[in-house]
Amino acid sequence: MAASASPSASVPERRGIPAASFVEDVQIYLSQIGLDVNSALAFLQERLQQYRVVEMKLLAQQRDLQAKIPDIEKCLDVVATLQAKKGTGEALTADFEVSEGIYSRAHVEDTDSVCLWLGANVMLEYSREEAMALLQKNLENAKASLEVLVADLQFLRDQVTITQVTIARVYNWDVHQRRLQQAATTTSES
């Protein structure tokens, strides 16, 4: 059974990424989509380019999440350390970054609250318990998002491979057809 990837046909997708179909029989594929070899190759090259653009976006999102997760884990460690020091009367000594490359040392006395940057220049004060819950939830969400991104990237790489194979099959089929025509022309002239 021949599978096709028509520009107008609805194809299954994963989170907006259209699935590529493996082409078993190029001649049937070309007749189903109603394109000549050059148009089919142009369509497939365009689809391949679209996959590359999506891949770059997903890779950027993956890098962002991979940078975000250690930051969240560091925040969790700090809040856990504050929690562990609670009631001991012992101050926590920490070095923190004031600006890029400039650090300062702070002595944090027993405190019941912490301030967390939420982004967009917004900082809110939370109890240690609320901060731990929020950070844990953010960490779980970031890890889950990373898993989905990794699965999306794998799906995308599979579609790129299928499309590249299809391009090669269509091109090789065209070369083979031209050779057959040339051989038939040479034979009929003899």
Rank of each mutant, 00 (worst) to 15 (best):
P7M: 02
S8G: 09
S8N: 14
S10I: 10
E13L: 06
R15S: 11
I17W: 11
P18T: 01
P18L: 01
S21K: 09
F22C: 03
E24S: 08
Q27C: 00
I28E: 08
Y29A: 03
S31Q: 09
Q32R: 12
Q32F: 05
D36C: 02
V37T: 09
A40V: 04
L44G: 00
E46K: 08
Q49A: 08
Q49K: 12
Q49C: 03
Q50F: 07
Y51C: 00
V53L: 11
V53C: 04
V54R: 15
M56P: 03
L59V: 10
A60H: 14
D64G: 10
L65K: 11
A67N: 13
K68A: 12
P70V: 03
I72Q: 06
E73C: 00
D77P: 01
V78I: 11
V79N: 04
A80W: 11
A80D: 11
G89Q: 05
E90L: 09
F96W: 15
E97M: 14
E97P: 05
G101R: 12
Y103H: 12
R105N: 09
H107Y: 15
E109D: 10
D112L: 11
S113F: 14
V114D: 08
N121D: 12
L124I: 14
R128F: 10
E129S: 13
M132K: 14
L134Q: 09
L134N: 10
L134W: 14
L135Y: 09
Q136N: 10
N138R: 15
N138W: 15
L139Y: 15
A142G: 04
K143P: 02
S145D: 12
V148S: 06
L149M: 06
D152P: 02
L153R: 09
L153V: 01
L156T: 02
Q159F: 00
V160G: 00
I162T: 05
T163Q: 01
T163Y: 02
Q164E: 08
A168V: 05
V170E: 00
V170M: 04
V170Y: 02
V175H: 06
V175S: 02
H176Q: 08
Q177T: 02
R178N: 04
R179T: 04
Q181K: 08
Q181Y: 05
Q181S: 04
A183P: 00
A184Y: 13
T187C: 03
S188W: 07
E189C: 01
